[in-house]
Design a protein around this nucleic acid. Structure first.
Length: 284
DNA sequence: TTCCAGGGATATA
DNA sequence: TATATCCATGGA
């Protein structure tokens, strides 16, 4: 039986080395809108996820990930998935040809469900620099002090905060959503939810205050690896309009039509399209 | 000054 | 079920 998979990385106690960077690009991964907690310092990036951190650096054609949390980040960066295969399937769609070439090093991260729920409630009708700033203040205000950084807050910490706190960090009218959603989450088993179908999980997530279909799709894509979905935001609506020359349909119908087109790889297709067209500042 | 950002809640028909 | 309006904030 042939072995079709090969390792793109090696790991030791304190670092991961990505030897094949054709499917791993730091900028592509960080700038495609799935993650908000990172800093650029010189030619390095510092990334924070849940209560862990790592340092990312390109060197001699490799990417080095320095961290105390090696196994956590092997999973986080989705290193055991074959992105060549995914891209070879998606590139059969003409409209994905250039976006895949442009964002060839994108990977869909396996992020923490609670962090994604809170982050994407904050993301609604907001822009990425402000989302980053609000989340940074959130961690500083409620997250555990890890020494040289702050962890993402636990659910208990989030539940201890009131509306005035969330307003003080700049959340605006989403402050009330964050208070209510945090309360509602006491009845959620976030690990169990992964076993639900995309449709059932979406129903569960949109019951949270501040979570609609788009935010739910982002949570499912970035925390639960549900890829038979296509989050429709202000950019991907423009992509749809450009692709089909039709801006009369609702976002839900757009999403449904695109999932009909890209199937189980829709979530990946969405990231390539989002990253490419946002970089072009596509307008109607 | 107005528009816009990884939209959602609410009222209304 | 489908559409209209309102919502904090700050950069462009």
């Amino acid at each position: 039986m042939p072995i079709t998979y090969y390792m793109i990385y090696s790991k030791s106690a304190d670092k991961i080395i990505i030897s094949d960077t054709s499917d791993f690009n730091i900028e592509h991964i960080l700038d495609c809108g799935q993650v908000f907690r990172y800093l650029k310092t010189g030619d390095c990036y510092t990334l924070f996820a849940k209560d862990a951190n790592c340092l990312l650096q390109s060197k001699d054609g490799c990417v080095i990930i320095k961290t105390k949390f090696v196994d956590f980040f092997v999973n986080y960066f989705d290193l055991d998935r074959d992105y060549k295969k995914i891209k070879s399937e998606l590139v059969k769609f003409d409209e994905l040809n250039e976006p895949i070439r442009f964002g060839s090093g994108i990977r869909l991260l396996n992020q923490d469900p609670l962090e994604m729920i809170i982050s994407f409630i904050i993301s609604a009708n907001n822009n990425i620099p402000r989302i980053k700033m609000i989340i940074e203040r959130l961690c500083k205000g409620l997250g555990q002090n890890m020494g040289d950084y702050y962890a993402f807050p636990t659910l208990n910490a989030l539940q201890s905060a009131d509306e005035s706190f969330f307003k003080s960090i700049g959340a605006g009218y989403r402050a009330m959503y964050l208070v209510n959603a945090s309360r509602q989450l006491k009845d959620f088993d976030l690990d169990y939810l992964k076993s639900l179908t995309t449709s059932d999980l979406r129903k569960k997530l949109v019951s949270l205050m501040g979570v609609g279909n788009k935010v739910a799709d982002c949570i499912m894509l970035f925390a639960y690896k549900k890829t038979d979905l296509f989050p429709m935001d202000t950019w991907t609506k423009r992509v749809y309009t450009k692709m089909f020359n039709d801006k009369t349909v609702s976002a839900d119908v757009m999403s449904k039509n695109l999932v009909g087109r890209f199937g189980d790889l829709s979530g990946y297709a969405q990231q390539y399209l989002y990253y490419y067209f946002r970089s072009l500042k596509l307008t109607y």
